[in-house]
Simulated scan of single mutants.
Amino acid sequence: MLELEHDFRVVDVHARLSPDGRGEPSTRVPPATPARIEREMHQAGIVQAVVFPGTRPDESYVAANNGVARRSVERPFVGFARINGVNALETDRTGRFRNAVSRRQPFHTTPEDVEQYAYDDRFHGFVLDPAVDGVPDEAVLAELEAASLPVIVRGSEAAPPSALVDPLLDRGFPAIVSHGGGPSVCRPSAHAFLDLLEAVDDCYLETSGVRYREVLERALLEHPDRVLFGSGAPDWHPNVAIMEILTLDVSADKLRSAFSKNACRVIDSLRPE
């Protein structure tokens, strides 16, 4: 694919990496090798990208996180550590019952893991898919609050806004909601995720997978300082993701904020040197 030309500095806050060449059981997309992601970012004119491992239920993420950090060296990647939790989202009685009897397993993220990631200069934040990874317990959440690094939280129909606010979004660290309008999210739910920006102060919305043009335009018009560009690579080619933003009916200043300025304010390591 030809390189995309545009006049913006673009940073990407959502790219999944497969450091060991393994794909995910939940997707048919080929493994996102570091070389592939770097090549596609270059084609799209993206100068830096937040990268993290994909979901692997009932597995420890320590090895995958270390692999991402190792493969990010001398590449324009900013590593985020994926974490998981012992609790389920309490969207119904089943979730509440599971939490009443849940017990920490060896593969669950511990407070010590979070502390180590937070003070390791290879990692600059965290990522969590609560519908798959679960929700951290209070001890882990307290360590996340102490670290105060950004946490990318995936939204979906299985992880709706009403279930995310109390356990994850209003906790003293910047929360970046991802996939809030993705393929598995209906239009009313996409607007509900956008409403989070009004309800929660330190909450942001990233654009990966958001298929509803009116949601993106509303987000940039109503909350121009809270929208961050995410490509969603490798599920979407970065060129396609950027074009979807470039064709929105908003001013260049708002596009510039979404492509770079907002992310640089939330994630220090994305700032220009």
Rank of each mutant, 00 (worst) to 15 (best):
R122Q: 08
T247E: 06
V13C: 14
K254T: 11
P106N: 05
Y119V: 08
V51Q: 11
G95F: 01
L144Y: 01
P183W: 14
R213K: 14
L216G: 00
A118D: 04
V13N: 09
D129K: 13
R28D: 13
R82T: 03
Q48L: 01
V185C: 09
F259W: 10
L248C: 03
R218D: 14
L89A: 07
P234D: 01
Q116A: 15
A252N: 13
R39K: 15
G125E: 00
A163P: 09
V68I: 12
S60C: 08
V250T: 05
G230H: 00
L221H: 14
Y119D: 11
V114T: 06
R271W: 05
D92Q: 02
M1F: 10
W236M: 10
V266S: 02
P150N: 03
A142P: 02
A100C: 02
P224N: 09
V185Q: 09
P136G: 02
G209R: 00
R187T: 08
D170M: 07
H223K: 04
K261W: 12
P150D: 05
A190H: 09
Y117A: 03
A49K: 11
A32C: 06
D249F: 01
L168T: 04
D137G: 12
R103S: 14
E40N: 13
V13A: 11
F107Y: 15
E214V: 08
V47Q: 14
W236S: 11
M41I: 01
A175S: 15
P34D: 10
D268F: 10
A49Y: 03
A163T: 03
L141E: 04
D137K: 01
V114K: 11
V227N: 03
A258L: 06
E115T: 12
P53V: 02
A146E: 13
A219W: 05
G181Q: 02
E74F: 11
F80Q: 12
S184Q: 13
G172R: 02
L17C: 04
R39M: 09
S148Y: 10
R103A: 14
P130V: 04
L270K: 07
A81Q: 05
R36S: 09
D137F: 02
D129F: 13
L194N: 06
E222N: 09
G21D: 10
P76T: 05
A142R: 13
R75H: 10
N87Q: 15
V11I: 09
G23S: 13
L255I: 09
N87S: 11
G23I: 02
D133A: 10
R256K: 08
S184A: 15
G209K: 00
V68M: 05
A233P: 02
R154A: 14
D129A: 14
P31T: 07
Q48N: 07
D166R: 15
A190D: 00
S231Q: 12
D20P: 06
P111Y: 03
R70K: 13
R98C: 08
L246P: 10
G54A: 04
C264K: 06
H42S: 12
G172K: 00
A131M: 04
R98H: 07
D235I: 06
V200C: 06
L216T: 05
E157D: 12
A15E: 03
G232Y: 03
G155L: 00
T94E: 15
G45M: 06
L169V: 06
S251R: 12
T91K: 13
G45R: 11
L4R: 08
Y212S: 08
F52C: 06
N65G: 10
G155M: 00
D20R: 13
V132P: 02
A64F: 15
D113A: 04
Y61V: 04
N99E: 04
L144G: 10
V101Y: 06
F8V: 04
